[in-house]
């Protein structure tokens, strides 16, 4: 179980910078990425809520197919989808096994399948939408839909500050390692090594808190000189900032296609509620 060590290696500054930030801003090239963020968010809202209250399996399956197509269109990373599947399988799998233990039988598979279907539709919807929106467009979309400006600002600030924080974290961690002593033996299941790393990761936050405190002070002071407080909750500034958002024909087309599909699906679903099982 070198997992801890490997995970730590993964937390290399460069890697996270490349993987996360590079990908985050790389989404506007897809079909879905060119849609208006508001369209995508409203679309998402529908598919995040409605499935919870659907018990019609045909409709759920139809939605699942739609989501699968959209996920492909959004070119979501396979890694994320893999994680999603793994999570679903373990969660639902354990529930199923335990319910057998409590006296259930094979018949509990079907309701569980329905649950899985619902969860997949919802998760795929979120993957589709959020991997199609780069942080800027997401925050603009949110603020257009009335989410407080502070959140929108924090979102892009997060992307700004992450590499700096990681760098600093990395440096301090290195200082701990350069002056610390790794356990001589790994211990059973590498627990000594794991404990050593977890301990210093926690300890790193002590200096990091102090350093970040200093940093935050300058940042907030600089925000003052850069007119941030002038802009907060100033509707005019917001309008100016969001003026580039516009619903284009492709947004209407996307909404229209989804609506048509859903109408057809609901008709089919009511006619044959148990098309599959």
């Amino acid at each position: 179980m070198e997992a801890v060590k490997r995970a730590l290696d993964k937390i290399s500054v460069e890697r996270i910078k490349l993987e996360l930030l590079g990908n985050a801003y790389n989404s506007s090239s897809t079909v879905l990425g060119r849609l208006d963020p508001r369209t995508l968010l409203i679309w998402y809202l529908f598919f995040a809520i409605v499935p919870w209250f659907m018990h019609n399996r045909t409709i759920l399956l139809g939605m699942f197919i739609l989501m699968a197509v959209c996920t492909v269109l959004a070119r979501a990373s396979t890694f994320i989808i893999f994680i999603l599947c793994l999570g679903l399988i373990t969660q639902v799998g354990w529930m199923f096994l335990l319910s057998l233990f409590f006296g259930g039988g094979g018949e509990s598979v079907l309701p569980m399948l329905t649950l899985t279907l619902k969860l997949s539709v919802i998760s795929l919807a979120s993957i589709t939408v959020f991997s199609s929106l780069d942080p800027e467009r997401l925050s603009d979309g949110l603020s257009a839909l009335g989410v407080p400006d502070a959140f929108a600002f924090s979102l892009s600030y997060g992307y700004r500050i992450l590499p700096t924080l990681l760098e600093e974290f990395h440096q301090i961690l290195l200082s701990f390692r350069l002056r610390g002593l790794r356990p001589q033996k790994n211990g059973m299941l590498y627990w000594r090594t794991a404990a050593y790393y977890l301990r210093i990761i926690v300890l790193v936050f002590y200096p990091l808190m102090l350093n970040t405190a200093k940093r935050s002070r300058t940042t907030v002071e600089a925000l003052e000189t850069r007119g941030y407080n002038y802009a907060v909750n100033n509707p005019q500034v917001k309008k100016l900032k969001l003026s580039y958002l516009s619903l284009k024909p492709r947004d209407w087309m996307f909404a229209g296609v989804t609506a048509l599909y859903l109408i057809a699906l609901f008709t089919l679903g009511t006619a044959f509620p148990e098309l599959i099982y």
């Binding site: 930030l21 600030y157 850069r226 002038y230």
Partner: peptide
């Protein structure tokens, strides 16, 4: 510097002043 990209940061102040 509070924005993720260069142009964005350069525009930040004038944008704040509307």
């Amino acid at each position: 510097l509070v924005r993720p990209t260069v142009l964005d940061d350069a525009c930040f102040t004038p944008l704040n002043y509307g």
